[in-house]
Design a protein around this nucleic acid. Sequence first.
DNA 1: CTCCTTAATGCAATCCAATTGCATTTATTT
DNA 2: AAATAAATGCAATTGGATTGCATTAAGGAG
Lengths: 149, 149
Amino acid sequence: MHHMKKDALVDIIRNAGFRATKPRRTLLTYLQKTRLPQTILEIADGLKDSIDQVTVYRIVEAFTKAGLVRQIDLRMGRPRYEIADARDHHHVVCVRCERIEDFIGCDSDHLADKALKQVKGFSHITGHSLEFFGLCNSCVKQGPTLQAA
Amino acid sequence: MHHMKKDALVDIIRNAGFRATKPRRTLLTYLQKTRLPQTILEIADGLKDSIDQVTVYRIVEAFTKAGLVRQIDLRMGRPRYEIADARDHHHVVCVRCERIEDFIGCDSDHLADKALKQVKGFSHITGHSLEFFGLCNSCVKQGPTLQAA
DNA sequence: CTCCTTAATGCAATCCAATTGCATTTATTT
DNA sequence: AAATAAATGCAATTGGATTGCATTAAGGAG
């Protein structure tokens, strides 16, 4: 009980209130390494099915509630998930090729204040989402879609 | 804003490139009257099944692509839809009771500029999403959830 | 370390939102 | 009114997400 320096990973999971099981460690490691926000199925796939899909669903849901993971909606059919880093970053998404880039500095406190002044039933904001959509440069170059009427 | 002359409605639909069919007129009128962003199934339900669900799916998708309808993601499982008014408004959502209020004035142009300066592969933003999450006053009053550990 | 409790996982079955195919209907043009 | 192409409705199907339950294993106690 004294010689084992606990993994940082294990600490993170335990501090969030969970047992540091192998699937949880594997999944968290995977998300830490992964740049892009992923769907549940992409995560399960990326883990080469070393973890059952049902378990991936359950872990991601639990981690999201606990604040370890962040849910992102990019108008791509289903929600995506990424590791919740301290840096509050957002995305710019190409609506044609789905290219994704990050940006930071949305000044959400200022925005939240503005919002709170307008709404009647709230006095406290705990989270926010902000995403931009557009065409990336290479898709712009390609010109309009081929399908004609 | 409530009652729109039928001709105006027909024009809107035709200008978007569609035939002004009864289901389309019904659905658009319904969304114009409805305050809250709704899921597909809520819309179908709200229309009392006067329109087949499949048709609701198809119309909403087409209208969204055409810019008549706006897709909103509020971390509530599935996307919601509302009429695309000129006023660029966003929402504050209670994560417990799902109460929704609107607010305006996000200064998206400024934010988009900031984002564009940081990303490499984009030079044009066409849309954005911005939502705030928190606990509404009445849910705050209720205190923490009953389930203890 | 071994035992013990119970959280967590895996698998099967199920659910239900979303999609697809196709025959029929309907808006619009001539 | 006829022509024709788009749009709808219904049935069937797909596939992501959920649930139940038996089994496994994490973590605390002794």
